[in-house]
């Protein structure tokens, strides 16, 4: 229990700065003002990493759900006006809709054909025209929803020709144009999120290297003395890397808890039933494991950085 408390920074490490058989610290590493800096830095970087990675994961999920939701789907609209802009009788539109539906059902690339009922069309247009639509006076288009077979070889041009042979004003919408735009935007944002993750990682490495270098400079004479006594580079590096790892674990644990709270708040805000376009903020198992591994990854990164910095600095000694 003592070990865990010490590791979490809730209890002072009585071994720091004291040489013992098992845990050697020949430098007074516990008495350095830079310790708090490393903890706070790592804590903040952990929060930022968690947020940016979660953002990247959420954007991946969003793009996937949008594309898989609309992939292989299309809709046929039979407008209420003909190609000359003349309003057609509602009966003509219904007849044309039925004919097109029958033609589509015979197409071997199409799996399902669903003619939308009047009520369904009203539900679709009510956000723009309101709920009290007069069905007698308002001209309604005919809408058919299609699902293609997976990996079907769709001849879009032939399909449009066949549809417009029945109703020249009819349109086939495969959602490609706007879906591609949305996916391009989402992928750009996701790329930006991963770049931010990379930048945060590099910033952490640079800042920790700077902190370790400052510490080495503060203990320059003591380091030289250890070196002259025959301490090998590894011996000295081990002490600083272990100390940095402990500080990083303490900082990243606190950052992780704070990050979890923030993500919880975000998930709660995005879980509202009113949001229809943006899917719910959820992470799959693998993504959760990566988030949980952040404190360990960042601590190992800090340890490695400390080790390399110490070894590079010691190389300057004869």
């Amino acid at each position: 229990m003592d070990k865990i408390l010490r590791l979490l920074g809730l209890k002072k490490d009585r071994f720091l700065g004291i040489a013992t058989a098992k845990r050697r610290y020949d430098l007074p590493l516990d008495r350095n003002a830079g310790n708090k800096f490393v903890k706070i830095l790592v804590g903040l970087m952990t929060v930022l990493l968690m947020l940016s990675l979660s953002g990247a994961f959420a954007l991946s999920g969003l793009a996937e759900r949008w594309s898989s939701g609309l992939e292989g789907k299309a809709s046929v609209e039979i407008p209420a006006k003909d190609i000359n802009g003349i309003l057609l009788p509602q009966e003509d539109i219904k007849t044309a809709t039925q004919k097109i539906a029958l033609m589509l059902e015979d197409d071997k690339t199409i799996e399902t054909v669903t003619v939308l009922s009047e009520a369904e069309i009203i539900a679709l247009i009510s956000p723009w025209l309101g709920d009290d639509i007069d069905t007698q006076t308002t001209p309604f288009p005919g809408i058919i929803s299609l699902t293609f077979y997976k990996q079907a070889d769709i001849n879009k041009a032939a399909l449009i020709t066949n549809i417009q042979h029945i109703a020249p004003q009819a349109r086939l919408d495969t959602h490609e144009s706007w879906l591609n735009d949305v996916l391009r935007l989402t992928n750009s944002l996701r790329f930006a999120a991963y770049v931010i993750v990379l930048v945060i990682g590099l910033t952490t490495i640079v800042a920790i290297a700077g902190a370790v270098r400052a510490r080495l400079s503060a203990y320059k004479e003591d380091l030289e003395l250890l070196h002259l006594m025959g301490a090998q580079d590894n011996y000295i590096a081990r002490q600083l890397q272990r100390h940095t790892m402990i500080l990083a674990l303490q900082g990243s644990f606190l950052g992780f808890v704070f990050g979890l709270i923030l993500l919880g708040i975000m998930a709660w805000l995005l879980s509202s039933k009113d949001l229809t376009l943006i899917p719910e903020f959820t992470l799959d198992g693998g993504q959760k494991i990566i988030l949980f591994l952040i404190p360990i990854i960042i601590s190992v990164m800090a340890m490695g950085t400390a080790r390399l910095t110490v070894l590079r600095t010691l190389k300057q000694l004869p």
Binding site: A21, R24, D26
Partner: peptide
């Protein structure tokens, strides 16, 4: 600890 240091190294 000062005297012990070379032995510990």
């Amino acid at each position: 600890d000062n005297v012990a240091l070379p032995l510990r190294i």
